[in-house]
Design a protein around this nucleic acid. Structure first.
Lengths: 332, 332
DNA sequence: ATGAAAGCGCTAACAG
DNA sequence: CTGTTAGCGCTTTCAT
């Protein structure tokens, strides 16, 4: 059942049918009603490919994230998908993995689908500061507007929405020092833009509070509870009275470590996670965590995208403040 | 830059270019090489819409799940996406929510995208046993092959891969009774097919072990840690010496409840979760959980889909056994 | 307000 | 092995 059939049945031309489908104002209400009725009766559905061919767009946005099975990204993707649908856009999803070359391939592949815009979820796409590490994104931005969630790249055509990881980390570590903590462990699992921002906040806070920056207190480990616990157990001579982690999983690892060592939380060691995930309330004692308000990030990104797609100017960088969720692993 | 341009530059016809693009065997290696070179030089990418129009397919499969931010579904979607890509298929994702009408709409909408196959993730789509509750799926199955992950519908064109929730539940509850547990609480959060299977396994096990089925020991609650904890706290006069939950979140809620009540786990109460998620290892003590091996389910589904898509016959129902992961909330 | 007709870029049947 | 050509179903001028 195609547009010709409908046109024939309705006794009009295909142009008219097309106009009805697109709700063009220059069709009389009467014909509209007639044609619509015929369409209903025959369960007519316009062929998206044919339409795509003509318009060179299918109202589809590409979403790439390293791994949707990650809690944070899953939440973001869920929100983005739902939100984009309300605007009539479909989502095609690619999970790129974390490897540079895989990310490049994913972007290249998804662009071939003639998406209307590209959404990159996770600061992993922001590169390492070197311009070459984000060249593939700059290239993509020449074809479609690119929206980066939780990362920043300065580049024409890429729009970034990020949570203020630096500030919240600075504030949190400062609060810890003010509460008398002297040896604050920083746990991180990636060299991404946001991880770097967190570390910068951590170091600046120490510096401004006259505490030394000790490299042995900055530990890089996978974001897995048991990995972190065992890593800490394996480090010998490592002493700390507080932990800030760049993800809840790592913070829970620290809690597990404390338990094994017979350290009490928060008395002996304050522990703070990041992302305010379900793990935080699962943890015992419940984990204080930083909420990066990913829904707000996503909402902002979608809003920006809709603006951009309709030709309006959009700011290249929007910063969303984070907030601290106090639970029972901290006492300040 | 389209196929005509390339044809012109290469001094061949568009048919030849098309053949090269599709790697047809009936083009000489020499021309292939020449044409390929031109394509490279000009960064030519075939227009997927035009191709879709002709073939009426874009090598795309639709994935619908109620909510990707759920751990289980996120894991499945991640796996499916990756796996389908290796077969050259793209994924378009819809999160339908849990409401019946929303699910119907999602299926209807996604079918308009002319997907090659439809993947339904989560037993939520299996309906409640009434045929009307799955009519929309049967209808979809008339257009494209439908694959149901972790649910069962008997219907032409829908292929189901499910974990054997009945059996593992039966076995687990039996083990509990053999270990002397008499009052086993069953926690569930949905009326889905798989939840019903779990309950059936639970009840059959009780019956076969000469224990009464007490409806007050079957508690329906949201799959949220604190909701479950508070619900149990609110129930008065409720006594139990074991808990089996249809999801880890609920089981952790039970652990939290036990802690509040000063009950020791597993001595006073054995607790068993489902899905073997990160929550299980986060929990204190670590949670025994049932692993439904969702990756195996997904792999099986994708394999079946590839078979079906290439015209091979496929079984309508495949059952994957679950396995019990013992951790510290059980002592048998 | 409506219709006729020219593409959009590609595939595949047919002809050589 | 290669070229010619007729669609695929829709949008969009350009006429009327």
């Amino acid at each position: 059942m195609n547009i010709y059939d409908i046109a024939e049945l309705a006794g009009v031309s295909i142009a008219t049918v097309s106009r009805v489908v697109n709700d063009s104002p220059k069709v009389s209400e009467k014909t509209k009603a007639k044609v619509r009725a015929i369409m209903e009766e025959n369960h007519y559905t316009p062929n998206v490919f044919a339409r795509g061919l003509g318009l060179n767009s299918m109202k589809t946005v590409g979403i790439i994230c390293p791994d949707v099975s990650d809690d944070y990204m899953a939440g973001s993707v869920a929100y983005l998908e739902k939100s984009l649908r309300t605007y009539g856009y479909d989502c095609i999803l690619y999970c790129s993995g974390y490897q540079y070359q895989d990310k490049v391939n994913a972007v290249e592949l998804i662009l071939k689908k003639r998406i209307d815009a590209l959404l990159l979820v996770g600061s992993n796409y922001a590169g390492d500061g070197e311009e070459t590490s984000t060249k593939y994104i700059a290239k993509a931005a020449r074809e479609v507007p690119v929206f980066l969630i939780n990362g920043y790249i300065h580049c024409q055509g890429v729009y970034c929405v990020l949570s203020d990881n630096y500030q919240i980390m600075y504030d949190t570590v400062s609060a810890l020092t003010e509460a008398g903590r002297k040896r604050i462990l920083f746990l991180y699992d990636s060299k991404s833009y946001s991880a770097a921002e967190k570390m910068r906040g951590y170091e600046d806070a120490l510096r401004d509070n006259d505490l030394p920056i000790r490299k042995e207190l900055e530990i890089f480990e996978q974001n897995k509870i048991l990995k972190v616990r065992d890593r800490l157990l394996a480090e010998k001579g490592l002493e700390f009275d507080a932990v800030v982690a760049s993800d809840d999983g790592m913070a829970v690892g620290a809690v597990k470590y404390a338990r094994k060592k017979g350290l009490s939380v928060p008395e002996d060691v304050n522990i703070i996670g990041f992302n305010n995930s379900e793990l935080a309330v699962c943890c015992e004692p419940e984990l204080s965590s930083i909420d990066s308000r990913s829904e707000v990030l996503c909402k902002t990104a979608v809003d920006s995208m809709m603006m951009a797609l309709s030709g309006h100017p959009v700011r290249h960088k929007k910063i969303i403040p984070c907030c601290f969720i106090k639970r029972r692993t901290t006492d300040f």
